[in-house]
Amino acid sequence: MLGGTVAVAGAAVFARDELARLYWRLPGMEKKRVEGELDHKGAEWTAASGYNWRRADRPDDYVIDRVVIHVVQGSYRSALRVFKNPAHGAAAHYVVRKDGHVAQMIRELDVAFHAGNRDMNERSVGIEHEGFVDRPQDFTPAMYEASARLTAGICARYGIPVDREHIIGHVEVPGTDHTDPGPHWDWKRYLTLVRQAREKIPAAG
């Protein structure tokens, strides 16, 4: 009896801890994966810690209908460092540097812990941007243009409308205590660039 109790208790602890960070799927039911494969052409692959995202099979298990815009409150390098840290508990799919360089850290198939809201994490792709919300000079033309091309590609892949209902800031996520991308993020300019980039992407099929 004592041995049985310990086994059950141990199993319960294991299940609680593992289910908090893993998404179980039936064998053979998820899409083929290739290590380091990119969703955005031209991005650099640098993997986030597996503790900062959840394995999934989007858009089959969760519809992707949002893009969430973040600002790091720090440098590109610091963003990559913390997203690789298993103790951080959060990461975005992409990080955009001031010069327009893009890193992909999590596949779009998977659920990144970026928005602080489970529903929004499951339905969105998160894009971080190097810089600080109170420094408008951090939002360079190269950053806007590269990020807009990235968002346009995401919108094309999942049929997401290019508007402020579907492309939102972290500050707009229900329940958040974050303020990014802040008052200096130029939404009008950004959406114009996204629409221009989206028009250049051939229709699927």
Rank of each mutant, 00 (worst) to 15 (best):
Y62P: 07
G36R: 13
P161L: 00
I168H: 02
L109R: 14
Y190M: 00
E199F: 03
L193K: 01
G153F: 13
K200P: 14
N85S: 05
E35Y: 15
E108A: 09
K188V: 11
G100S: 02
I106W: 06
V111N: 07
L80E: 06
A148I: 05
E35I: 11
V111L: 08
G116K: 02
T176F: 11
D177G: 08
I127H: 12
Q104R: 04
I64M: 10
T46R: 02
D110Y: 01
R123A: 11
V63E: 15
E128Y: 11
G89F: 02
W45G: 13
E128P: 06
H114F: 04
R21K: 15
D17R: 04
D177R: 07
S49I: 02
P161Q: 01
D39K: 01
L193R: 00
W187P: 06
A115L: 04
L2T: 14
L150P: 03
V6T: 05
R54I: 08
R195W: 00
G182H: 05
V6Y: 07
Q104H: 05
L38V: 11
G169F: 00
M120Y: 13
P141N: 00
Y94E: 11
A20R: 15
V173R: 13
H70Q: 07
F113T: 09
H88E: 00
V63S: 12
G42V: 11
D60A: 15
H70N: 03
E172Y: 06
M120Q: 10
G50D: 00
G28M: 04
P161K: 00
L150A: 01
R55E: 12
E172L: 09
H114V: 02
I160W: 05
T179C: 10
G89A: 02
V68T: 01
I160R: 01
L193A: 02
L2W: 00
E172K: 08
M105G: 08
S49P: 12
Q196N: 02
D119Q: 10
I201F: 09
V71A: 09
G74Q: 08
I127R: 02
A103N: 13
V82E: 00
H40M: 06
G175N: 10
V96Q: 08
K31E: 14
L22I: 04
D110N: 14
W53I: 07
Y76K: 05
G3L: 05
P183L: 14
D99K: 12
P181G: 11
I168F: 06
A87P: 08
A204M: 06
F113G: 04
E44A: 08
T46F: 06
R58W: 11
R21H: 14
